[in-house]
């Protein structure tokens, strides 16, 4: 199980890299925030996988916090784009 989880975490990290490339490339702010949002969700996936390997629930609240922060930050940036580029 431990080896399997390590493979999963490496794949998730690789997916995070792909999303980060999009975050750096842009070209619009919307692309960047969608990509960063995805990186946060992938991070939460890695944390959940860690809990499956160790059986420890120490990091589990991180899942809830990451889901909340990802949503709040996306809404904030969407509002910002409307304020900056809107009529």
């Amino acid at each position: 199980m431990a080896g399997f989880i390590t493979i999963i975490q490496v794949i998730l990290a690789g997916a995070g890299m792909l999303a980060l490339v999009r975050a750096i490339q842009g070209p619009t702010l919307a692309d960047r925030i969608v990509a960063v949002d995805l990186v946060l969700l992938l991070l939460a996936g890695g944390v959940a996988a860690h809990a499956a390997r160790s059986g420890s629930e120490l990091l589990v609240p991180v899942l809830v916090v990451v889901a909340l922060v990802a949503f709040a930050s996306t809404v904030l940036v969407a509002r910002f784009i409307e304020w900056r580029d809107g009529p």
Binding site: A30, V34, D37, F71, V75, A78, R79, I81, G86
Partner: peptide, 12 residues
């Protein structure tokens, strides 16, 4: 989130 970001992108 999809709706908000999508609309903001459109308005921009």
């Amino acid at each position: 989130s999809g709706h908000l970001v999508g609309r903001a992108t459109y308005l921009a």
